[in-house]
Lab assay of single mutants.
Amino acid sequence: SGWQYDTQCSLAGVGIEMGDWQEVWDENTGCYYYWNTQTNEVTWELPQYLATQVQGLQHYQP
């Protein structure tokens, strides 16, 4: 899939279920990364769990 979410945008106002994931701001890069509080996994790309929800939002315009 060529769909890419801009990680400089916060998910805070989007209104999706974050589940075990937390969004963390990284000052050095000026982007958010994502931290799974259960598994301690850290990812710079939007986790599939969140990406599926964001893509499903009608009002979200990339």
Rank of each mutant, 00 (worst) to 15 (best):
S1Y: 02
S1Q: 02
S1V: 11
G2H: 15
G2M: 15
G2T: 15
G2I: 15
G2A: 12
G2K: 15
G2C: 06
G2V: 10
G2S: 15
W3T: 15
W3D: 12
W3V: 13
Q4I: 15
Q4E: 12
Y5I: 04
Y5L: 04
Y5D: 03
Y5R: 08
D6V: 00
D6R: 09
D6L: 04
D6W: 03
D6T: 09
T7K: 12
T7S: 12
Q8S: 15
Q8G: 14
Q8M: 10
C9D: 13
C9Y: 10
C9N: 15
C9L: 13
C9E: 14
S10G: 09
S10Y: 02
S10V: 01
L11S: 03
L11M: 02
L11W: 05
L11K: 04
L11F: 01
L11E: 03
A12L: 06
A12S: 11
A12G: 14
A12F: 04
G13V: 04
G13E: 09
G13C: 10
G13H: 09
G13P: 11
G13W: 02
V14G: 14
V14Q: 14
V14E: 12
V14W: 13
V14T: 11
G15D: 14
G15T: 10
G15V: 03
G15P: 12
I16D: 01
I16F: 08
I16Q: 02
I16P: 01
E17G: 05
E17L: 03
E17R: 10
E17K: 13
E17C: 05
E17T: 11
E17N: 05
E17F: 07
M18Q: 01
M18E: 03
M18Y: 03
M18V: 02
G19C: 00
G19S: 04
G19R: 01
G19N: 02
D20F: 15
D20V: 07
D20A: 06
D20P: 07
W21F: 06
W21C: 01
W21S: 01
W21V: 00
W21P: 01
Q22Y: 02
Q22T: 09
Q22A: 10
Q22M: 08
Q22V: 13
E23H: 04
E23R: 02
V24K: 15
V24C: 09
V24M: 05
W25L: 10
W25H: 07
W25I: 07
W25K: 12
W25F: 09
W25M: 10
W25C: 07
W25D: 07
W25P: 05
W25G: 03
D26Y: 06
D26H: 05
D26P: 00
D26C: 07
E27M: 05
E27V: 05
E27T: 08
E27K: 14
E27Y: 06
E27Q: 09
E27A: 13
N28S: 09
N28C: 12
N28M: 06
N28P: 09
T29P: 09
T29Q: 10
T29G: 09
T29K: 15
T29W: 05
T29C: 11
T29M: 10
G30Y: 03
G30I: 13
G30S: 13
G30F: 05
G30R: 14
G30D: 13
G30T: 13
G30H: 01
C31K: 13
C31Y: 11
C31V: 10
Y32A: 03
Y32K: 00
Y32M: 03
Y33L: 03
Y33F: 06
Y33P: 02
Y33N: 06
Y33V: 04
Y34T: 00
Y34A: 00
Y34R: 02
Y34N: 01
Y34S: 00
W35S: 13
W35D: 09
W35T: 15
W35C: 15
W35I: 14
W35F: 14
W35G: 06
N36E: 06
N36R: 02
N36Q: 10
T37L: 09
T37K: 14
T37W: 06
T37F: 09
T37C: 14
T37A: 13
Q38E: 11
Q38D: 15
T39C: 06
T39Q: 07
T39M: 05
T39Y: 02
T39H: 05
T39K: 10
T39D: 09
N40E: 11
N40W: 05
N40R: 09
N40Q: 11
N40L: 11
N40I: 02
E41W: 05
E41K: 11
E41D: 07
E41M: 05
E41L: 10
V42A: 09
V42Y: 04
V42D: 05
T43L: 10
T43P: 00
T43Q: 12
T43H: 05
T43G: 04
T43F: 05
W44E: 14
W44G: 09
W44V: 10
E45C: 10
E45N: 06
E45M: 05
E45H: 05
E45W: 02
E45K: 11
E45F: 04
E45D: 09
L46D: 00
L46V: 06
L46F: 04
P47W: 00
P47I: 00
P47H: 00
P47E: 00
Q48D: 13
Q48V: 10
Q48T: 13
Q48K: 14
Q48M: 14
Y49F: 13
Y49A: 13
Y49E: 14
Y49P: 09
Y49L: 10
Y49K: 08
Y49V: 10
Y49H: 14
L50R: 00
L50C: 04
L50S: 02
L50W: 03
L50N: 00
L50K: 01
A51L: 06
A51E: 06
T52E: 12
T52P: 03
T52V: 12
T52Q: 08
T52S: 13
T52R: 13
T52A: 14
T52W: 06
Q53V: 01
Q53C: 01
Q53H: 01
Q53S: 01
Q53T: 02
Q53A: 04
Q53G: 01
V54R: 02
V54Q: 01
V54T: 04
V54D: 02
V54L: 10
V54F: 08
Q55V: 09
Q55L: 08
Q55T: 08
Q55E: 06
Q55N: 08
G56P: 08
G56L: 08
G56Q: 14
G56W: 09
L57G: 09
L57T: 11
L57S: 11
L57K: 15
L57M: 09
L57Q: 13
Q58K: 14
Q58L: 05
Q58A: 12
H59W: 06
H59D: 15
H59N: 13
H59F: 11
H59G: 12
Y60L: 14
Y60Q: 14
Y60D: 15
Q61I: 06
Q61W: 04
P62G: 12
P62M: 15
P62K: 15
